[in-house]
Simulated assay, not measured.
Amino acid sequence: MLDDIQVAIDASEDPLIGLAWSEAGFERLNPFVMQMQAAIELTDDQLDNLFDAATGVV
């Protein structure tokens, strides 16, 4: 999945996307997160599950 995100960032015409990724602090409803969700075609449920899984990592 990280490779897919990197491809989406590289393909973006928005220079702030790369900065947001490099300085990432992720919030579920952050516009950057939602843009990457669409770019890698995740459903809302898949993204929710990803955030749920991430809480167990920290």
Results as ranks from 00 to 15, higher is better:
Met1Val: 15
Glu27Tyr: 07
Val7Met: 09
Val33Tyr: 00
Asp44Arg: 11
Asn30Arg: 09
Ile5Ala: 11
Leu50Phe: 05
Gly25Tyr: 06
Ala24Trp: 02
Ala11Trp: 03
Arg28Thr: 02
Gln46Pro: 03
Asp4Gln: 15
Leu50Tyr: 02
Leu47His: 06
Val33His: 00
Gln6Val: 15
Ala24Thr: 11
Ile40Ala: 06
Ser22Lys: 13
Pro15Cys: 12
Pro15Phe: 10
Gln35Phe: 02
Ala11Tyr: 05
Pro15Ser: 07
Ile40Phe: 08
Gln37Pro: 04
Ile17Thr: 13
Ala11Gln: 09
Pro31Phe: 03
Leu2Arg: 12
Met36Glu: 04
Ala24Glu: 11
Ala20Met: 12
Ile40Arg: 04
Phe32Ile: 14
Ala24Arg: 08
Gly56Phe: 01
Val33Ala: 07
Asp4Lys: 15
Val57Gly: 01
Asp44Ser: 10
Arg28Asn: 00
Asp44Gly: 07
Met34Glu: 08
Asp10Arg: 14
Ser22Glu: 15
Glu41Trp: 03
Phe26Pro: 14
Phe51Tyr: 10
Asp48His: 04
Asp52Gln: 07
Thr55Cys: 01
Asp52Ile: 09
Thr43Cys: 08
Phe32Trp: 08
Ile5Asn: 02
Gln46Ser: 06
Ala53Gln: 07
Ala8Trp: 02
Ile5Ser: 02
Gln46Phe: 01
Asp4Tyr: 10
Gly25Met: 14
Leu2Gln: 11
Phe26Thr: 11
Ala39Trp: 00
Gln46Asn: 08
Phe32Gly: 08
Ala8Gly: 10
Glu27Pro: 01
Leu19Thr: 13
Glu23Asp: 07
Asp44Lys: 06
Met34Val: 14
Thr43Lys: 03
Ala39Cys: 08
Leu2Lys: 13
Ala54Tyr: 00
Ile9Tyr: 02
Glu41Thr: 15
Gln35His: 04
Asp10Lys: 15
Leu50Asp: 02
Leu42Ile: 05
Asn49Asp: 04
Trp21Lys: 05
Gly56Ser: 14
Ile5Lys: 06
Asp3Phe: 13
Asp52Trp: 02
Trp21Asp: 09
Gln6Phe: 12
Leu47Trp: 01
Glu41Phe: 06
Leu50Ile: 12
Pro31His: 04
Thr43Phe: 05
Glu13Cys: 12
Ala54Lys: 00
Phe32Met: 11
Ala20Arg: 09
Gly25Pro: 00
Asp45Ala: 10
Asp45Tyr: 01
Gln46Tyr: 08
Ala11Ile: 04
Val58Pro: 00
